[in-house]
Amino acid sequence: MSQLQMRVSDEDRERTAQQLQHAFSEGRLTQLELEDRLEIALTARTYGELLGLIDDLPVDQPQVDDVVELESKNGHIKRAGDWAVPRRLRVVSKYGSVELDLSEAVITHPVVDIELDLAYGSAKITLPDGGVANVDAFHSDWGQVHTGDVPGRPRAGAVHVVISGRTKYGSLTVRHPRKRWLSR
């Protein structure tokens, strides 16, 4: 199933409605266009339906077809802290490892696609609290894929990360952030 066919949440519908109202306030939509699109947005069932309503409007984030690519031949690729996660991320590393920490990142999309192309390196992806990850499209020839207790199916209100790609000799680990115990 493609991401465009995935079912949306009430929050997704509301976010799209806000984008439409903002476009109307900027003069990009007429009153009639706004009303027609809002009616569809509030009854939409899939991301494809929602994206069809806003794909002709300017946005500050990457469009569905935009891909941010990170590449390294033998260095370590690492993203952590307060960084903007694109809708689609393609990571290529021949000999190095990859560490993507999404736990404190700014994620404006309900679904994030991460494609990993690793030859000899491994990848570790840390999800935000409550995040889910589907790793069904990731293959490791000689390594392992570890997801622990990370759910694989979409959940309402949770970031859904879809991981695809391959590694020849490395592994993939997907986990939630470690709990930090506060001293009293």
Rank of each mutant, 00 (worst) to 15 (best):
S2V: 05
S2Q: 11
Q3F: 00
L4H: 04
Q5H: 08
Q5T: 11
Q5Y: 05
M6V: 05
R7T: 11
S9M: 05
D10Q: 13
D12F: 01
D12T: 08
R13T: 11
E14C: 05
E14Y: 07
T16M: 09
A17W: 03
Q18P: 01
Q19E: 15
L20H: 01
Q21S: 12
H22K: 09
A23N: 00
F24Q: 10
E26M: 08
E26A: 02
G27D: 11
Q31Y: 13
Q31C: 07
L32S: 14
E33F: 02
L34K: 06
E35Y: 12
E35W: 06
E35N: 15
R37H: 11
E39A: 15
I40Q: 14
I40S: 13
A41N: 08
L42A: 12
L42M: 14
A44V: 08
R45C: 06
T46D: 10
Y47Q: 09
L50T: 05
L51E: 11
I54A: 02
L57H: 01
P58N: 07
P58T: 10
P58L: 06
V59P: 00
D60E: 13
P62D: 13
P62M: 09
P62F: 06
Q63L: 09
D65E: 14
L70W: 10
H76G: 02
H76L: 15
K78V: 15
K78S: 09
K78C: 10
A80I: 01
A80S: 15
G81P: 09
D82M: 07
W83I: 09
W83L: 03
R88W: 01
R88L: 02
L89N: 00
V91S: 03
Y95P: 00
G96E: 10
S97H: 14
S97D: 15
D101T: 12
D101Q: 05
D101N: 14
L102D: 04
S103M: 03
S103D: 07
E104S: 13
V111F: 01
V111R: 00
V111Q: 00
V112P: 00
V112T: 11
I114Q: 00
L116W: 06
D117N: 09
Y120H: 14
S122E: 08
S122N: 09
S122I: 08
I125E: 03
I125M: 10
I125V: 15
G131H: 07
V132H: 05
A133R: 12
A133G: 12
A133M: 03
V135S: 03
H139I: 04
H139C: 02
V150Q: 11
G152I: 08
A156F: 08
H160V: 02
V161R: 01
I163T: 05
S164L: 01
R166V: 03
G170D: 05
G170Y: 04
S171M: 14
L172Y: 01
T173A: 13
V174D: 04
R175F: 03
P177R: 12
R178C: 08
K179F: 13
W181C: 04
L182K: 14
S183D: 13
